[in-house]
Nucleic acid binder design. Structure first.
Length: 187
DNA sequence: AAAGAGATGGTCT
DNA sequence: GACCATCTCTTTT
């Protein structure tokens, strides 16, 4: 995946990010080979001139990386509890990103279950906070280059095409910009 | 099956 | 001091 691929507007990148792979490894974990893999099945786009976006009111210490290089991770803490993962898009200074809301587990399922309190497979990674748990996303991942094969958290294209007609609808969990249909899912 | 509330802490006003 | 890009558990139909 070329970085230029991500240097387009978030609403364009978002639907095309569907069916790409998210891979996380935990090198610090004493156990061997703790890789977790999921196929992205739900995303949301957030842009600068978007009242629901963290960048709507300009650059702050928190949203700094959203104004940085495309393909990097923007991790924020939601409701003081959850870590949510975004991929920065657009050009430097644009302040856009795509929130990864859900994946289909395809590898390391036992590890995800362990981190998630042994729930049924369907409930392992079907929300942004749950994804943060299952992939062990932390503030340390903020600003990480998701396109670097050496990164412990990265995006991979295994050749699977995005859905030709993704399910599209309003974003969830927001109070402003509710009408903008920038939530995309694999049908 | 659906609806409600508490948890919990950083960020911004 | 208010507001969250959420989740889980409990209570109510």
């Amino acid at each position: 995946m070329d970085r230029a691929w991500f240097e387009r507007d978030a609403p364009v990148v978002a639907p095309e990010l569907l069916n790409k792979l998210l891979v996380a490894v935990s090198p610090d974990d004493p156990r061997h080979d703790r890789a977790v893999v999921g196929r992205i099945c739900e995303v949301e786009a957030y842009t600068r001139d978007d009242p629901a976006s963290h960048t709507f009111r300009g650059e702050t210490p928190r949203n700094r990386v959203m104004f940085g290089r495309a393909g990097h991770a923007y991790v924020y803490t939601s409701y003081g509890i959850h870590r949510c993962l975004n991929v920065v898009t657009g050009s430097i200074g644009d302040g856009q990103a795509v929130l990864i809301r859900a994946v289909v587990p395809v590898g390391g399922v036992a590890i995800m279950a362990e981190r998630r309190g042994h729930r049924v497979r369907r409930e392992l990674v079907d929300g942004p906070g749950k994804l943060g748990q299952a992939f062990a996303v932390t503030a340390d991942h903020n600003g990480m280059d998701l396109l670097d094969p050496a990164s412990t958290l990265r995006l991979v294209d295994d050749g699977t095409a995005p859905p030709p007609v993704p399910t599209r609808g309003p974003r969830v969990g927001i109070t402003k910009g509710v009408q903008t249909p920038w939530r995309f899912r694999v049908p």
